[in-house]
Design a protein around this nucleic acid. Structure first.
Length: 805
RNA sequence: GCCCGGGUGGUGGAAUGGUAUACACGCAAGACUUAAAAUCUUGUGAGCGCAAGCUCUUGAGGGUUCGACUCCCUCCCCGGGCACCA
């Protein structure tokens, strides 16, 4: 009998679906496991083999958990709002909704052909009004609590497409769509106050089991730093400039102040004499793109405002400058500058601004050069020229100077973050409308909850307007509404939400996908949440993963969800590159279509290959040869069946091997070491083949239950061919017999001075004395030792003996 | 520049203080075949040697240890993230 995956796979997929094998049961008495993979964006390119990597892995986990007796929820849906679909629709004239329907159908067909154990009865789609009603509801709650607000901020503007771009639409300073260089324009945008949750987003990482790499990246992204805020009085004016620093230990060498060009005090403090120069500089800085501004590392530029401030530490009068390397959006948009910062140092040298030193390095030669302002010394040191603080280390000085400034009322201990609030408006058609109404009298008014969802109007024209408004702005009968407050004339908000909006909370909806009264029933949320294991791409660590944690925490605060963290465990899979080591891309013509692999080798081969190709977390290039290797392995499994059908016991060696395999698979699957799990199966099959002996039915069944999570179709088929009436999915996950695994004999390694010189087969529990006399009696070892004195013997029971001479 | 990973045969990789190179690919030889494919068998880190065997080998150098791919220090290279962050 031949192994023909094309015949057996669709059969079992149909069987599993018709018998509702993978339906999750609300409130089951069994313990629950919520296994989640990131839901795909249904693009026109179809399923990527990278999706298949993540899904095959967690499918194996989900199937194993089910066998272990858990009530498993393993759902799937569609993250379908977004730009690629809108762009495609603009290009082809096919409505985005139609495009989405087609792409979704294609993705669904592809996912089903892989035989993944999703509970399709809970399928969701972010573009469904019944779904985005609740996306809008969350926005209203955020608005109610003051966490959604409007602000005038600079946005990326494409002068060619005449449209605002999100950061993710800007590639290397250029428009992703047309390639034009992006400018900055100030527009009124909706913002979400994620910064209010910065501390909790860091602290609560302690409560969850994420890969360390993921935790570190989130912590760095939030970028919490402790420091001091100091007030500099502007000379002969009531104004003060607050400045944030982490290096208050260098305050006594602060000889000038630098403001960001966008700093609000620039206009107010600039003197008449400097007005022209300052205005010119500010204008130039605004015109420079982000790219240009950060590229210009070589040459420092700046301009003097003409104004002076007082350094509160030593009451010295110091000049106030402007420079574009000072960022408006970090700290207070102003810094005090000194000889102990590379950038400040370079700028002072260029414009002949006086400098002095206040930190002494340990190295005397270096100190000589630092003292004479030959080099910048940005490290920590011992304080000098710092009045009563002389002689302290930088760390000590930071504490004492901060306390001293606090007493004088000129400064305070403070904390800063790199994390910024989240721009939540898009001037696009294909997204959730923001449920807000602008009334001339009442101002910004929330759409009443009972009027949700605010449906996206189905129109023929969804092209950009060319102004800085969304395409929705031109649909006058949709835009013009009565104010829910006063009944007067009002207009709808025409911006839509970014596609992170729908993916922020989607995993909650799987718990209760049909509910039209609530985001989800609270008892169901309590039963299923948190997600026990969530797998997705590393690239979502600082966007989707962080955003969705923030939204969940907010929902926890308003008592919608039961705990403060949504995901108990988070893992990430590595990217699958093309065979040539580059990214898979249509333009390179190197894309692997999963359909082709499934047609030629079957879903089981694709799934097992994706697990075998390399360590789960690493970036790996595709190898078609490697796929063939896995296919050969599955053929060997098939042959094992045709050779072993007779009803008898396996030999003790095979029996031991299958129990060892059991242990290995158990451990490797939990640790996401899928590649070595597959290797262990291969070793087992090779062993059976080498021994040329018929394997007993029981042993084969044992092996098939272990293989089932990774290669479900072939396992189910052979299981039935062995005469089983019930699906293999209902089998208990097998337990290994640890006594059977124990070996009676072992290979004892004999080392001389740490080098392997001989090996002997001995009983497993050999004593040290016996091992020693055996080792010394060996010819090879005798020759090595000859007349030399044995200094020491190290014996590792069951492993080795090392003779030191 | 900073923060995370990583560097092991011709290739993807295995081994987290105890037999380096599991497993797979590729390659070579043989069997089957009119032939090819598929399959099976054997071999396959490098060097020396007819052979038994010996020597070397985990990016480079040092250290700890009876013993280091594994731990520590210095450096080089590659991948990812952040980046004028005060």
């Amino acid at each position: 009998m031949l192994y023909e995956p094309q015949k057996i796979e669709p059969k079992w997929q149909r069987f599993w679906e018709e018998n509702k094998l993978f339906r999750a049961e609300d409130f089951s008495k069994k313990p629950k496991k919520y296994i989640l993979v990131e839901f795909p964006y249904p693009s026109g390119d179809g399923l990527h083999v990278g999706h298949a990597r993540s899904y095959s892995a967690l499918d194996a986990i989900a199937r194993k958990k089910k066998m272990e007796g858990y009530n498993v929820l393993f759902p799937i849906g569609w993250d379908a709002f977004g730009l690629p679909t809108e762009n495609y629709a603009i290009k082809t004239g096919i409505h985005p909704q139609k495009v989405t329907e087609e792409n979704t159908a294609n993705f669904k067909r592809q996912l089903k052909s892989l035989g993944l154990s999703f509970d399709w009865s809970r399928e969701i789609n972010t573009t469904d009004p019944k779904y985005y009603k609740w996306t809008q509801w969350i926005f209203l709650k955020l608005f109610e609590k003051g966490l959604a607000y409007q602000a005038e901020i600079p946005v990326n503007w494409c002068p060619s497409c005449k449209i605002g771009l999100a950061n993710e639409e800007v590639v290397g300073g250029a428009c992703e769509r047309c390639g034009a260089v992006v400018e900055k324009r100030t527009l009124k945008q909706w913002m979400l106050k994620i910064t209010a949750y910065a501390d909790r987003l860091i602290e609560d990482l302690e409560k969850v089991d994420y890969l360390d790499k993921i935790k570190t990246q989130q912590i760095n992204w939030i970028g919490k730093s402790y420091g001091t805020e100091i007030d500099f009085q502007v000379e002969s004016s009531g104004k003060k400039i607050p400045v944030f620093t982490t290096r208050i230990d260098t305050i006594f060498s602060g000889t000038f102040i630098i403001l960001a060009p966008e700093h609000q005090l620039v206009k107010e403090i600039t003197t008449k004499e400097q007005k022209n120069a300052v205005e010119k500089y500010v204008k130039e800085a605004a015109q420079k793109g982000e790219l240009e501004r950060s590229e210009l590392e070589k040459e420092r530029t700046g301009v003097f405002t003409g104004a002076y401030a007082i350094n509160p530490a030593n009451n010295e009068k110091i000049p106030i400058w402007i420079a574009d390397f000072v960022l408006a959006h970090y700290g207070t948009g102003a810094v005090f500058a000194d000889a102990h910062d590379q950038r400040d140092f370079e700028m002072a040298k260029k414009y002949n601004i006086p400098l002095k030193v206040s930190l002494r390095p340990k190295n005397d030669d270096l100190w000589e050069r630092v003292k004479n302002l030959k080099v910048c010394y940005p490290e920590e040191g011992i304080l000098v020229n710092s009045a009563q603080f002389d002689g302290l280390t930088s760390a000590e000085a930071r504490k004492k100077i901060t306390t001293w400034l606090e007493k004088k009322g000129a400064g305070r201990k403070t904390v800063n973050y790199k994390l910024r609030d989240w721009v939540f408006s898009r001037q696009h058609y294909w997204g959730e409308p923001i449920p807000i109404i602008h009334c001339q009298k009442c101002g910004v008014v929330a759409v009443p909850e009972k009027e949700l969802p605010v449906e996206l109007p189905y129109v023929e024209k969804y092209q950009p307007t060319g102004t800085s408004e969304s395409p929705l702005a031109v649909i006058s009968d949709w835009v013009n509404v009565k104010c829910p407050g006063c009944g007067g004339r009002a207009k709808r908000e025409t911006d839509t939400m970014p596609n992170w909006a729908g993916s922020n909370w989607y995993y909650m909806r799987y718990c209760d996908p049909e509910n039209d009264k609530l985001i989800a029933d609270s008892k169901k949320l309590k039963y299923w949440l948190p997600v026990d294991w969530y797998n997705g791409g590393f690239e979502h660590t600082t966007l989707h993963l962080l955003y969705s944690r923030f939204i969940y925490k907010f929902l926890y605060d308003i008592k919608v969800v039961p705990q403060p963290e949504p995901y108990q465990k988070r893992t990430s899979h590595g990217v699958v590159l093309a065979e040539d080591g580059r990214k898979m891309s249509k333009s390179f013509g190197n894309v692997i279509n999963p359909d082709e692999i499934v047609n030629k080798y079957g879903a089981d081969t694709l799934r097992v290959y994706e697990m075998f190709m390399g360590p789960f977390g690493e970036t790996i290039a595709w190898s078609t040869q490697g796929v063939k290797g896995v296919y050969r392995f599955l053929e060997k499994v098939w042959r094992l069946f045709s050779q072993c059908i007779e009803n008898k016991e396996s030999s003790p060696q095979i029996l031991r091997a299958v129990h060892k395999l059991n242990k290995k698979i158990d451990e490797d699957l939990e640790a996401t070491k899928f590649n070595t799990a597959v290797a262990a199966f291969m070793e087992f099959v090779n062993l059976c083949q080498e021994r040329k002996e018929k394997v007993g039915k029981g042993t084969l069944e044992h092996m098939l239950t272990l293989l089932y999570p990774l290669a479900p179709h072939i396992s189910e088929e052979l299981w039935r061919l062995l005469g089983q009436k019930e699906s293999i999915a209902f089998q208990k996950w097998p337990k290994y017999n640890s006594k059977l695994i124990e070996e009676e004999t072992i290979t004892l390694v004999i080392q001389v001075n740490g080098k392997v010189r001989d090996k002997i087969e001995v009983e497993a529990d050999i004593s040290e004395e016996k091992a020693r006399s055996l080792a010394i009696s060996r010819e090879k070892i005798k020759n090595r030792i000859s007349d030399k004195e044995i200094k020491k013997v190290i014996f590792v029971p069951g492993k080795l003996i090392n003779i030191v001479i």
